[in-house]
Computed example of a mutant assay.
Amino acid sequence: MKPTPSALKWMAEKRARVAFDLDFNLQLIADLQAKAAALQEDLAAIDRSIGLYDETIDPGAIEPVNGWRGNYGKRGALKAAVVEVLEAHAPNWVSTDAIESAIRAKFGLVFETPVVRKHWYNGSFRNTLKTLASSGRVERLQDPNSRPNETGHWRIKSDTPRLADLAR
């Protein structure tokens, strides 16, 4: 049997990760579309109620308001949400970008500028991942210092050994 070239192994692994990220994001889009449909139904019901209360009021003239107050609910909710995303996809690796997308969707985070998003990403979000990794609840696929420009991949750390770990 001919040995598989390392470049081909790398491409196969990269393809597998990209395929997983694509599936994850397509599911996220489907979840967001379902949430948007439910919100549209709620909005239509509220508009009908306003019309029943006072037909002279135009509900379309009411400006949208971002009700986000700058927190995630009770203490530890961001950390719990990250763990929830990783547990939902265990034992698979999940990219940092996919986790971020899920967290932003869950909490309805909208950033006015890229600078504000970067501040949140480098502060709250990335620190949450680092804290979870240092506490031993999650593990990162590769050392961030060895490949600083590559997207990280994370998963819930399992107490039971995995077949790939046993093979090593």
Rank of each mutant, 00 (worst) to 15 (best):
K79T: 14
D31F: 02
A38Y: 08
D23C: 10
G51R: 09
V82D: 03
N71S: 14
K118S: 10
I103L: 04
A61H: 10
R69M: 04
A19Q: 12
R15I: 03
E55L: 00
F107W: 13
A98M: 12
A80Y: 05
K106I: 03
R117M: 02
T96M: 02
T56N: 12
A36Q: 14
L43A: 09
A80F: 07
S124Y: 07
L22T: 09
Y53A: 11
F20V: 05
L52T: 12
S95I: 08
E55I: 00
F24P: 02
Y53C: 04
F24H: 04
R69A: 15
V94D: 00
L43F: 09
R17H: 12
W68N: 12
V65K: 09
R126M: 04
A44G: 02
H89E: 08
A45Y: 04
V83Q: 06
V85Q: 02
Y121S: 06
D47M: 02
L43N: 10
N92H: 15
S124W: 04
L26E: 15
V82E: 06
V18N: 13
F111E: 13
W120P: 03
S124H: 04
P114D: 11
A61R: 15
G108W: 10
Q27H: 12
A16Q: 15
Q33I: 02
N71I: 00
S124D: 12
A38G: 09
W68D: 07
V115C: 05
N66E: 13
I62C: 06
L86Y: 01
E63L: 13
I99N: 03
A98D: 10
N66C: 07
Y53M: 06
K106Y: 03
H89M: 00
Y121V: 03
D47I: 00
G108K: 11
I99M: 02
V65A: 09
R17D: 13
F111N: 14
A102N: 12
D31G: 08
L26P: 09
F107K: 06
E63M: 12
W68T: 02
W93C: 09
D58L: 01
V94G: 02
S101N: 13
G73V: 07
T56Y: 04
A77E: 05
A105N: 08
S101W: 10
A38K: 09
T96W: 05
R104T: 03
T113L: 13
E63S: 12
A19T: 08
D31W: 01
D54M: 03
H89L: 01
N66Y: 13
L109W: 06
E87V: 07
G108N: 14
V110I: 13
W120H: 07
V82R: 05
E63A: 13
A34S: 10
D97W: 10
A45M: 01
N25K: 05
Y53D: 07
P91I: 14
D31L: 02
D42I: 06
Y121K: 13
R104Q: 12
